[in-house]
Amino acid sequence: MFYQKVIDEFTSISKEIVGENLTGIYLHGSMAMNCFNPEKSDIDLLIVIENDITDVQKMAFMNQVVMMNEQAPAKGLEISIVKRKYCKPFVFPTPFELHFSPMHLPWFRDNPEDYVKNMRGVDKDLAAHFTIINRYGIVLYGESIENVFGEVMKKVYVESIWFDIENAREDITNQPMYITLNLCRAVAFLKEGLCLSKQLGGEWGIAHLPERYHPLILQALNCYKTKQTMQADLELADQFAYEMLTTIRFEKEQIES
């Protein structure tokens, strides 16, 4: 497995810092779904704990995570710590005790005490992460996925998807590869109930979405699999985002009604 040393070190350090309060450590995302590209993917990890952890533990954990992030792929590590009681039965939006991704590095480096104290709250994205864990997750340590994670209702998962892509028309200009593939897999879920990776979502899009968008999707897939940066036809990308959002919004309303 790519970056096995980083994953092993993360598991070891988490066990050491959290101790007996640790329920389990779970790998999800592209690495669990067998479409990991070290140039374009991050390493997605979820820690489940039984009870509160202290700010001292959080600080020790964050100091280690920041160092490990330097050895991670270009997009780094994405980590959440969640209490078991919010996992089964699943609670939405899901409370978390601590979160890290590279976008938050400046905050931690500028004021680590403030970060440790205030980087907590609720995260709608966790519904999508839990769904992936239930279908593809890998146990790195601790209890089985079946024992720890409850079912994420379709309505809740759809809301999590919408939260991620509702600004796609604006975002596709700056993140054409990510948004294009995310829209494909969102439509695949809503149309056929498929829970796909970005890569498989793009491949589904080629097979099922209008032919006029195939060049855009093929370009996104090629960039996802390589080191290339996507330079999209912005007019076509905007049309694609508009049409997919219209489809997603309609399907979402049907589920909610």
Rank of each mutant, 00 (worst) to 15 (best):
E251N: 08
T247I: 13
V91T: 15
G202Y: 07
L218P: 00
I25D: 01
L245D: 06
Q199W: 07
I133N: 03
L218F: 07
R109F: 03
K40N: 09
I161Q: 05
A188D: 06
N69K: 09
L77I: 13
A237V: 05
K117T: 14
P210I: 08
W204K: 04
P95E: 08
D123N: 15
N69M: 02
Y86G: 01
S12Q: 13
K198S: 09
I133K: 01
D55N: 15
I81L: 12
K83Q: 14
G76D: 04
S30H: 09
G121K: 07
L45P: 01
L216V: 01
M68K: 09
K88T: 03
Y178G: 01
I43R: 02
E50C: 07
Q239C: 05
G29F: 08
E9K: 08
E78G: 07
M59R: 07
I43A: 00
E170Y: 10
E16G: 02
G76T: 10
M62D: 09
N174H: 15
L183D: 11
L190N: 10
H28D: 01
L27W: 01
K252E: 09
L194C: 10
V48G: 00
I7N: 00
W162P: 07
Q64F: 02
T180E: 10
I25G: 00
Y224V: 04
E146W: 02
V148Y: 03
C87G: 03
W107M: 06
Q199P: 00
E70C: 07
L245E: 04
H99R: 06
M177K: 11
E170L: 14
P95K: 08
I132S: 07
K83Y: 10
G193H: 02
M244W: 01
K40R: 13
E50K: 14
Q254Y: 12
C195P: 02
L183F: 15
C184R: 01
D114A: 13
K58H: 05
Y141A: 11
D233S: 12
G19T: 04
F96P: 01
N147H: 00
A32N: 02
Q239K: 08
I79E: 00
T226R: 08
E70V: 06
T94F: 01
G19K: 07
H208Q: 12
D42S: 07
R169P: 12
Q175W: 14
R109C: 15
I13S: 00
I79P: 01
N111E: 15
E243G: 05
E256Y: 10
I43T: 08
V82Q: 01
M119I: 09
I7S: 04
D233F: 11
C184P: 06
N34D: 15
C184G: 08
T247G: 02
L183T: 04
E256G: 06
S12H: 12
T247L: 14
V82C: 00
E166W: 12
V152G: 01
Y178A: 14
S257Q: 13
E143K: 04
H214G: 01
D55R: 03
K15D: 04
E159I: 09
E159W: 08
T180I: 11
M153T: 12
I217H: 03
I49L: 10
G205W: 03
